[in-house]
Design a protein around this nucleic acid. Structure first.
Lengths: 225, 225
DNA sequence: TCAAAAGTGTTCTCTTTACACCCATGC
DNA sequence: GCATGGGTGTAAAGAGAACACTTTTGA
């Protein structure tokens, strides 16, 4: 806590980034929330986020928050929207630049030490009451994600290094909330020419094993169509 | 100038909105810039913009700036992106929430008193050197506009109340920078079912007069396809 | 041998593209 | 009467949607 105050000629807002962290678990789209331990909205769930420090840019701040909550880095992260209504925080005016991140299921295990806070994954169709305007942020993130599903290869960002086409299709269907024809889906995926066969397969259960595929470039998200 | 300073426990950034104001003039996509009269970047051209006051929300601020520079209100205005690199302004850290606005050509006449500043429209392919990171903002706005041309009815936001299909096609071509087939374009436009014939026509020159059309709902922008 | 998920092509429909001539007017 | 931009339809190609059976495995 600095003893010296920082002073300006005019009032300045505070600046935070909040992150909507999406992943797929148990065939559901889930989002990471943290339980607030102080006022305002004490005990309510909220998006992870925090103040932007003076030396870092907005994206770096979001990356830092993401790493603090999940231990994860190097995942898909995109600026979503900026929320700045005067009364969105009762303490002082706080502008938040919202980002959203997609966590592939294989990165999920390496959860960082939970920092003694209450942190939990919530299914998007079973959200608790949220602090501040965070429900608005979450809905906007969900909308952006759904939209991008249609005109980009963003769905692959949820996949582990090796995955089957059925798993991929499941993820697609969970997010878009509509069923996809298996043959058409596979045709579409293969035509994208962004995955390759690994030669390996996964057998699990008394049925034919599934071929494992891998992204040619795991970090690339293409705009298509 | 307030005599009393406003003080915080931690440093806060300043907050502005900057607006990319697009219009079509002389078959060119143009953007409004203002010449800076003070340091930094004195004499350089910059996007119109200004500080967000404490009682207004971000959109209201953008609307206010827009009205100050152009006298125009009630036009298409959308949040673009937030730029917040630590050193984007040499004086202090300034976060800017960029918006972009589209001005239809009939609203253009009613330019407000230019407020004694140097203000000018620049063709997008003939821009001067810009202050701060404003070239980055402008390019992003142009990109967003081009993208939306393909999946929304945003192009109509440039049109006056009454317009001909040829005028509309011109605008489309200027922004997308590619030629469109006349018959296919008209088929597409009419299939949208968002314009109606006015019954009037425009004759100008020694050729057949063109039918004038009007948007059924001038404020609506649909996502299509 | 049976249950369960993996894998695989073809046809039909709809959307998008390509393309050329007549029309109404002013000079 | 001629130059100028306004206005119009059809056919071919391509993209997207619909659809059902065989394969491989583990129990």
């Amino acid at each position: 806590m600095p003893v010296k105050k920082i002073c300006y000629d005019y009032p300045h807002p505070a600046l935070t980034t909040d992150i909507v962290i999406f992943t797929i678990q148990q065939q559901q789209l889930k989002s990471l929330l943290v339980k607030r331990s102080g006022e305002p909205y004490e005990g309510k769930w909220a998006l992870p986020g925090g103040f932007v420090s003076m030396h870092e840019n907005l994206r770096q701040c979001a990356e830092r928050e993401l790493a603090e909550e999940t231990g994860v880095s190097g995942v898909y992260l995109e600026q979503l929207y900026t929320f700045g209504d005067p009364d969105r925080d009762p303490r002082e005016r706080i502008i938040t630049v919202a980002y959203y991140a997609l966590i592939p299921s294989d990165k999920l295990q390496l959860r960082a030490a939970p920092d003694a806070e209450a942190v939990a994954w919530f299914a998007m169709d079973d959200l608790p009451k949220l602090a501040f305007d965070h429900d608005k942020i979450l809905r906007k993130a969900k909308q952006r994600l759904s939209d991008k599903l249609d005109y980009s290869t963003i769905v692959f960002q949820f996949m582990p290094v090796d995955f089957t086409l059925s798993e991929l299709q499941d993820v697609q269907q969970v997010i878009s909330e509509e069923d996809v024809d298996k043959r058409n889906f596979r045709k579409w995926v293969l035509a994208l020419d962004i995955i390759k066969e690994t030669g390996k397969e996964r057998r699990e259960g008394r049925h034919r094993p599934a071929k494992l595929y891998r992204l040619k470039d795991r970090n690339k998200v293409d705009i298509i169509r």
